[in-house]
Nucleic acid binder design. Structure first.
Lengths: 233, 233
DNA sequence: ACCGCTCATGTGGTCCGACCACTACGGCGG
DNA sequence: CCGCCGTAGTGGTCGGACCACATGAGCGGT
């Protein structure tokens, strides 16, 4: 009947849940500093080693941030912090799951682009155009990819949903895109990609959400179809 | 120029990246067993403590699975394994971000329901109906919630995209739904919810994707709007 | 009085060695 | 041939020691 020490699973897991609960209950605010590892361990009656594992776990989840020599802090708990792990999923996926991820991206990206068409500000639009022209002005695949990513990132940001933008960021993470793009662009998809980007841009300028949605869906869908055919071959 | 020992960040982080790379390169297959903690630590020239932290980190990410007394194994790396952490995001979010998450869910859920309308099998449809009737046959909020979750889960599964289903699962995770639902249902939303579920079901039976999309979007949108108004108040 | 450097303090990062809890497997006895 | 049981090996926990780094107080010079 001892409520204070419910012998759940492993000690470390208990520590993870405890800290997560503290944040969930609002007893730990974003940005706030936690007690030292030694104190935390003492409070829960566990060893420092176990507490360190718990902290490390919450660190990779983007919940905590450890600064060497300074202390442990709660992150801002913003979408970007927490959804960084989404990139891991993309990186470790392959085969059929890559297509599924691309399908999710198509759905979200098309909606985000449609929203952006309605909400984008002149400043944001200028930023988008900057990457569009820079993308068309070079032949270095590396540079093209970077501007391509930025192009879509700016659009996602203009949609006004940080969470959606963070998810899309994960779905376009460096290694993920690089792996798919390598093969895709070898088939001379450059010109097609440029045309699609131009179509998206036109829709944004015209503030036409439906056209933007269609253009974005088509854009991602092209890659999706290509990947699907690659897996079948 | 020593490529074998690039002194990156922390030792533990290096270990995490190393194991992740092993899996990414396909040198570690899903389900495969890893060497012991002691051996792994020795191979990378680090202490067992640091290696344990790395393993713990990859464990919470759903990449590895440690079985006490048996060994460490690579998970199946399926969508469900890797996207479990998505639930953490939902649990720790509040305020405006809850609305953003519901918006993402609305987009994905409506598409998933539309796909399900076209692809659902008789068996799957029967399962959906089971939860629908069970949901309407009780007054216990706890039980209603359980069947509600199962109702949408079956539909998501019928859509045929495991990744999407896993994300939706995270967006409907226990505590997340419970928190929002508590207030939502206090306003006598039961009847409205039942009507909406019935509409979704009708669309599935009729195999009408567009109707299904609209019904699902409306269903989630109702909660979304309610939550938005709550935040404004 | 002010600025800059130094160094003591406290923090997270790493390592070690020991022991505990559990699983798996093989051998012994029925 | 089957089932029990012991043992070896695994992850889980612990405690303590030392290292690397960040911070701020205090000293020195200006």
């Amino acid at each position: 009947m001892d409520e204070t020490a419910p012998p759940k699973g492993t000690v470390t897991q208990r520590a993870i849940d405890s800290i997560k609960a503290l944040i969930g209950e609002g007893r730990l605010e974003p940005g706030q500093r936690l007690p030292t590892e030694r104190d935390l361990a003492a409070q829960l009656g566990i060893s420092r080693s176990s507490m360190r594992e718990a902290i490390r776990a919450l660190t990779v989840l983007g919940v905590l941030e450890a600064r060497h020599g300074s202390g442990i802090y709660v992150t801002q708990l913003e979408a970007g912090d927490l959804l960084e792990t989404f990139g891991v999923v993309a990186d470790l996926s392959r085969g059929p799951r890559l297509v599924e991820l691309l399908e999710v991206r198509r759905i979200l990206e098309s909606t985000a682009t449609a929203l952006a068409a309605a909400r984008i500000t002149p400043d944001q639009l200028a930023e988008v155009e900057k990457h569009l022209t820079a993308m068309n002005a070079t032949d270095d695949p590396e540079e093209i990819l970077a501007h391509d990513l930025a192009f879509h990132r700016e659009i996602a940001a203009a949609a006004g949903n940080d969470t959606m933008a963070a998810i899309l960021e994960g779905l376009s993470s460096r290694t993920f895109r690089a792996r798919v793009w390598r093969g895709y662009q070898e088939e001379g998809a450059f010109t097609r990609t440029r045309r699609e980007h131009a179509a998206i841009h036109r829709a944004l300028v015209a503030r036409d959400p439906e056209a933007a949605r269609a253009a974005a869906a088509s854009h991602v869908g092209e890659v999706e179809e290509w990947l699907r055919s690659q897996l079948g071959a």
